[in-house]
Design a protein around this nucleic acid. Structure first.
Lengths: 164, 164
DNA sequence: CAATAGGGCTAGGGTTCC
DNA sequence: TGGAACCCTAGCCCTATT
């Protein structure tokens, strides 16, 4: 039994999501053959991509349901809250900068340097272009739209990308 | 709250080990579906089997290491207690027959009737066949071999099976 | 035989209970 | 306090479908 479980790295996850942003979900073989993402996914098959995408989906879509009183088991959050430490809501306490763009970056991750790294701008731009009430739309609305549009996540625990 | 912990009975443990002997470790669903063992494991899931096997593993593999002055915690040994009525040890007061085989049987347990009951003969035979120094090999050697071969225990507190 | 969707299974970490 | 029983889920495999 030489088969160990190969955990997905942040780079691989990035590449997958970027591939979905470019080719759409379900085009696993296309993503794998795309030279833009292939270097990051050399150890992955199209089946692996599909499975990972599914896992990402459930982890985000399950957030809203079954609030089974598991009060704060999330060791991974710590979004620099103010005085209130019991900010149990897993959603959006996004630190809002006064500058032009808002940055969401939990871990100092490479592969998001903007050069050939994955760009979520496409997905988000599409969302903003479609949502009429852009002015009043908050993060939750945008994320929700993208989730519906792509039938899957966009949030994810430790993601690092730019809004516009 | 409403969930009580259901401790494993000797029969269930028997069936689990026998199932592993037949199907190999990791084939929990197969063991569960095998009509040979299913009757004893009706209240158990494949996950339960896996967890129990893990527990058994750690309890046996920890024995060899960290000789933490555990002077004879082996309740299971007690070879030949004779007249002592307080034979609380659930193990091996091995009645040694003059016949061809030695019997190790703690509890008047079914499922070891030899017909379709679990046979550890396979594992032990394999061990004996491989160990060259069969004449000088004691129980410990055999058990150790089987542990390595099956990546897991074989000894265990309340066991009942045949040697050859 | 090629690709994808969906269900199933296991390993391992984590949690709960005693 | 530690261990046994149980839960959660990422990763992988299997099958059906096209």
């Amino acid at each position: 039994m030489g088969n160990q479980k190969q955990k997905w790295t942040a780079e691989e996850e990035e590449a997958l999501l970027a591939g979905v942003a470019k080719h759409g979900p379900g085009k696993w073989k296309n993503i794998l053959k795309d030279p833009e993402f292939a270097p990051f996914l050399t150890h992955r098959s199209n089946i692996d991509l599909k499975d990972k995408w599914r896992n990402l989906s459930v982890s985000t879509t399950q957030q809203g349901s079954k609030d089974k009183s598991r009060a704060l088991k999330l060791k991974t959050i710590t979004p620099a809250p103010l005085s209130n430490t019991l900010n149990s809501a897993p959603a959006a306490s996004l630190p809002r900068n006064a500058s032009s763009g808002t940055v969401i970056d939990d871990l100092p991750n490479s592969a998001s340097d903007g050069k050939n790294g994955p760009r979520f701008n496409a997905m988000i731009f599409e969302a903003l272009s479609t949502i009429k009430d852009t002015n009043g739309s908050d993060i939750g609305t945008i994320v929700n739209f993208i989730e519906v549009r792509w039938k899957s996540p966009c949030s994810l625990q430790h993601r690092s990308f730019y809004f516009i």
